[in-house]
């Protein structure tokens, strides 16, 4: 990081000198948030592949994958392995939110423009976005977190709760049966599988499109890897936030250095691999699902 260098560049841009090669970057995600996303992404991929092999075990591709990694025993081991890491990551996030929100008094975590908690503006943006889709109005001015980003967040949040609890219930079934009727395990198996389908299809079809594949972000939005976005992107995608940062004079405080080339290449490589393998799994599961068992 060299604050002097970046503010030089920022000044040049403000003065109207078009320097296409050196855009100004602003920070969007902290290193901790990027690591958290990385862990969630990696374990989710592991859970999705092993889980869908179990869900569609009668299909040829599932059998082949299972054989490839060492059979059901290996599949279940990696499923549980990823599940435990994801659980730990989820608990760390919950703890972090709780600590910052309650002990440090960062109330902005629970409401306001920097919070993931939905507000009225999200509904208005959703309505406005649909109007824009059909040429009935201007594009809404999204804030730091757009409504679909909040939906992504809460979908994963809800999914981890439901899939996690039902998963651990099945893992330690006789233990859970001490507290709840065993017939609930029937429900646990059902919602574990259905919610997993929802999560896998949502991430691989909707989330990947919303964040990476839609025109404007295609082929890859690197912000989750680099933690930084250009001024251009900030104005485009989060105009309300940009405007507020300018008005309150906070823009300089989120100024960041350009992401290193290796980091961008790392993000591109990981991103392409994950998006492509997600697409493969999406197609395989959809075909198997609609063709029947």
């Amino acid at each position: 990081m060299s604050p002097n260098g970046t503010s030089d560049r920022a000044r040049r841009r403000v003065e109207g000198t078009a320097v296409a090669a050196e855009p100004t970057y602003y920070s969007r995600f902290t290193l901790g948030q990027r690591y958290l996303h990385g862990v969630i992404m990696a374990t989710f991929m592991g859970l999705a592949f092993t889980g869908m092999v179990l869900r569609f075990s009668h299909s040829g591709w599932a059998h082949a994958v299972a054989l490839g990694v060492g059979g059901f025993t290996a599949i279940l081991f990696w499923h549980k392995f990823c599940a435990v890491i994801l659980t730990v990551a989820f608990l760390i996030h919950l703890g972090d939110m709780g600590y910052r929100g309650i002990f440090q008094g960062q109330r902005g975590i629970f409401w306001g423009p920097n919070s993931m908690v939905p507000r009225l503006k999200d509904l208005q943006d959703l309505y406005g976005h649909f109007r824009w889709f059909v040429w009935l109005g201007p594009r809404p001015k999204f804030d730091r977190f757009a409504y679909w980003e909040k939906f992504d967040y809460w979908a994963v949040f809800w999914g981890m709760g439901i899939i996690g609890i039902s998963g651990y219930a099945m893992w330690f079934a006789p233990f859970f049966a001490r507290f709840v009727p065993g017939s609930w395990l029937n429900i646990a198996l059902l919602i574990h599988g259905e919610e997993a389908l929802l999560a896998v299809w949502f991430i691989f079809a909707i989330h990947f499109f919303n964040t990476h594949l839609r025109p404007g972000s295609f082929p890859m939005d690197l912000v989750i890897f680099t933690g930084r976005m250009t001024e251009e992107e900030l104005k485009e995608k989060h105009p309300e936030e940009y405007q507020r940062l300018v008005e309150t004079g906070q823009l300089q405080s989120v100024l960041a250095s350009s992401p290193q080339l290796w980091l961008k290449n790392f993000g591109r490589t990981v991103g392409v691999v994950v998006v492509l393998s997600g697409f493969v799994l999406l197609v395989l599961t959809l075909v198997t699902f609609f063709r029947g068992r």
Partner: peptide, 15 residues
């Protein structure tokens, strides 16, 4: 299923 108890066996394997 080691530890299977009266509640556990109310799981229905043909539900």
């Amino acid at each position: 299923h080691q530890g299977a108890n009266a509640s556990f066996v109310t799981f229905h394997p043909h539900a």
